[in-house]
């Protein structure tokens, strides 16, 4: 967010208020921002409904409100988020096609009850309906925790279940590690565009690892700033809700491999999402993003 605000050259001041996951606190923050006379508010909402009242107050005053990452139901706010349904659908479909439509699959979900997890699971289920020969032999909730996922996959590997493919909601390199530790031949694995997994897909391809990284760009905040600026300049998008479509980076095709190699950066955190651009919105460079400096800093 800071990077995009800086490179746009159009933001005079960026006020950052960090209050995560608490809707009532967010309401208070937005009230303060309205009183402060801002032109636009980009927020990651804690709840789809709880902020509607205060969002209406803001838009009534002509403030552009863009919710990123999660949905809000307020009709006057814009929403820009990753399409989690498609994340589940596209990744699962790729996996089932790789298995030629038959085989046993493990689904390693995120946190029970999280909206993104539910959407991804619905996408997964939709893909499953298209492939009647695929059987889900185990479905686990990793809580997006590596240690939990590691123990689960290790138990599944020693359980004697026949596993032909693994779909993960993002705890991906952990599954690759478990196969390495257990010295079992790799099965096709679907993960997210996490740095470590992208690295695995490149470096372990020669050892037989087949997999795909489904993109889930984390810096939607930056894209939110870009969208808010566009709206302030009068270029309103056709739809109130904009869903960013994930891509599937497949290490068995030349195109996918090229994208994986372009994205991989051994200097970054293993779980840093490497797909950092949200076209056509963001215009910063990776250096801008990592510097994490806002306008005037």
């Amino acid at each position: 967010m800071k990077a995009q605000a800086r490179v746009s050259g159009e933001v005079s001041k960026l006020v950052i208020v960090n209050k995560t996951e608490d809707a009532s606190q967010q309401v208070a923050d937005i009230r303060n921002l309205i009183s402060a006379g801002v032109n636009a508010i980009v927020l990651n909402p804690a709840d789809p409904n709880a902020l509607n009242g205060v969002i209406k107050q803001a838009t009534d005053k002509g403030i552009v409100v863009v919710a990123v990452d999660q949905n809000v139901t307020a009709p006057t706010a814009y929403v820009l988020s990753n399409d989690q349904y498609q994340y589940g659908y596209l990744g699962a479909k790729w996996l089932f096609q790789k298995l030629n439509g038959t085989g046993n699959v493990v689904e390693m979900r995120g946190a029970a009850g999280a909206a993104a997890d539910t959407d991804r699971h619905n996408g997964f289920e939709a893909a499953l309906k298209e492939f009647p020969g695929i059987k889900v032999v185990a479905s686990t909730f990793t809580g997006w925790q590596e240690a939990t996922a590691a123990q689960q996959i290790q138990n599944l590997l020693s359980s004697g279940l026949k596993i032909d493919g693994v779909w993960t909601s993002g705890i991906d390199s952990t599954v690759v590690d478990a196969y390495k530790t257990a010295k079992k031949p790799f099965v096709p694995i679907v993960g997210a565009d996490n740095n470590a997994f992208v690295g695995d897909l490149i470096s372990l391809k020669a050892d037989g690892l087949v997999g795909a990284a489904v993109t889930n760009p984390p810096p939607v905040g930056g894209a939110g700033i870009a969208l808010a600026l566009q709206i302030l300049k009068g270029q309103k998008p056709a739809d109130r809700v904009i869903k960013i479509q994930p891509e599937v980076w497949d290490n068995t095709t030349a195109d996918g491999m090229a994208k994986l190699q372009a994205a991989y950066d051994p200097k970054l955190d293993p779980f840093y999402g490497v797909n950092f651009q949200v076209p056509p919105y963001t215009t910063y460079t990776k250096a801008d993003l990592l510097a994490c400096k806002g306008p005037g800093e």
Binding site: W144, A147, A150, T174
Partner: peptide, 14 residues
């Protein structure tokens, strides 16, 4: 060492 990665929620579930 067990997960061979360290994230900022490494131990939270414990």
């Amino acid at each position: 060492g067990l997960t061979s990665t360290a994230t900022i929620d490494l131990g939270n579930s414990f």
